[in-house]
Design a protein around this nucleic acid. Structure first.
Length: 420
RNA sequence: GUGGGCGUAGCUCAGCUGGUAGAGCACUCGGUUGUGGUCCGAGAUGUCGCGGGUUCGAGCCCCGUCGUUCACCCCA
């Protein structure tokens, strides 16, 4: 009886062959620079106590107020599927007292995140992020290093059409002073009700409005950059100098707004212009008060989150991905029952040497099996039949040009390793 | 949450003013005994997203619904 089909929940991103190989490669490229800089893995739960986000990310943010997957578990606890990574990392750092050892605590994470938004190009309800956090030190060189980690990952992938926007949100005093002037400036504007409501929650949001009339009105608005305290200004100047030294280009964007409440000081965003409306491929910044808010010590930190799905989309838009990078080294074609048994053993031995080996299963005709070898993208193919089993010698066929050479079965490992 | 576009074979799509479904690619097999990529031949595959309505008759029209997509909003 034919059963009704079940499909994936609305708006999730999922990766199956052959595109999954691209996803995996992109994700690994994003992680590599962090590993090379001594950042260590944090593997955390995808669900947390709801309070972690309402308190950490901020009740007033859209992420918390209307985009979280929140539910009650069987014990009556309020649980939320993580909408971002930083709060969870901070929770774990505090819980495991990592901040009581050497500082900074340098960690990275990679995994799925959840936001109950209306899906759109590059926006999914379950999406993937690779992130990094460096916690405990205020050194502006760390800000530069963290930004460089993301930038070098993008460069390793080959991305060209992206840019880095950076600003400083200053310390608490800087923001308080600016807020007073910004609010009184906004009061001089004639805003519609919904915009007013947005300004109530976070006046900085109005800088992000896409409507032309609002943009031009905001041209004269007071900028937070002009309200920075001496120490904030100096910190930011150092960050810029280090970025210059690293040869990382950036544009100052004093009107940049971030959706998470915890950001302070250095704040940045990577934007790609081969994508649609969802053009941010990564972003982050410093967060001075977050750890304390979550019951930990008063330590500062800085980190970023990179959108793996969007970066994959960006790489595809730039035509950067070649699909045969996971092709195997050898495709073994057994003919007959005895050969099949032998093939399993040969394959196992070769794989132990690090050679990627596939076997033609299903007793197909030789022609079909060769076709499968071709499709697999294997570098070499070997037919294993009665005569080969008797002589112990196989014809190693190089698929790219069809050239064959005789090799003893016992020496396949050596020969193939030499080619790899 | 709001608004627009679109749902036909695994993929990309065609299907005349309503007359019970097609192409290309991909897939499988074959073109004399055990060697792929080209060429030739043959074959399999669809509850035309789902539910209802109009009609003698609906893939084509109407309503609903689900999915998808784009934008707003928001952000990775």
């Amino acid at each position: 009886m034919k059963q009704e089909r079940i499909s994936a929940p609305k708006g999730v991103s999922e990766y199956v062959p052959s595109r999954s190989a691209r996803f995996e490669w992109i994700r690994d490229q994003l992680i590599a620079p962090a590993k090379a800089a001594g950042y260590q893995l944090m593997e955390l739960p995808v669900f947390e106590d709801t309070q972690l986000f309402s308190r950490g990310v901020g009740e007033s943010t859209d992420v918390v107020s209307k985009e979280m997957y929140t539910f009650e578990d069987r014990g009556g606890r309020s649980i939320t599927l993580r909408p971002e990574g930083t709060a969870g990392v901070m929770r774990a750092v505090i819980e495991h007292s990592l901040d009581r050892g050497q500082l900074p605590v340098k960690v990275f994470y990679s995994g799925a995140f959840f936001r109950a938004e209306r899906p759109q190009a590059g926006r999914y309800r379950q999406f993937y992020q690779v992130g990094v956090e460096s916690i405990g030190l205020d050194d502006p060189a760390i800000d530069a290093e963290v930004i460089a980690l993301a930038d070098s990952a993008f460069k390793a992938i080959g991305l060209k059409k992206y840019r880095l926007e950076i600003t400083s949100l200053g310390d608490a005093q800087s923001r308080a002073a600016h807020k007073v002037d910004l609010v009184s400036f906004l009061n001089t504007l004639e805003l519609d009700e919904t915009t007013k409501a947005r300004a109530q929650i976070n006046p900085l949001r109005i800088f992000d409005d896409k409507r032309e009339e609002i943009r031009s009105a905001m041209a004269k608005a007071p900028l937070l950059m002009d309200y920075l305290s001496d120490s904030s200004r100096e910190h930011f100047a150092h960050v810029c100098r280090y970025l210059d030294a690293l040869g990382i280009s950036y544009t100052l964007n004093p009107r940049m707004v971030r959706g998470l409440d915890y950001y302070t000081g250095t704040t940045f965003e990577f934007v790609h212009d081969g994508l649609g409306a969802q053009s941010g491929i990564g972003g982050g910044g410093r967060y001075d008060g977050l750890m304390e808010t979550l019951g930990g010590a008063a330590l500062s930190g800085i980190g970023f989150g990179l959108g793996v799905d969007r970066i994959l989309l960006a790489a595809e838009a730039e035509g950067l991905l070649i699909d045969n990078q996971f092709a195997s080294d050898l495709f073994l074609i057994p003919l007959g029952e005895l050969a099949k048994e032998k093939a399993l053993v040969i394959a196992q031995n070769l794989r132990q040497l690090g050679i990627v080996v596939e076997i033609a299963f299903g007793d197909r005709a030789l022609k079909g099996a060769m076709k499968a070898a071709d499709k697999s993208g294997s570098a070499f193919a070997v037919v294993l039949g009665e005569s080969e089993l008797n002589s112990g010698v196989v014809e190693l066929k190089r698929m790219i040009d069809g050239e064959v050479s005789s090799v003893k079965i016992g020496e396949l490992g050596q020969v193939l390793s030499a080619h790899a």
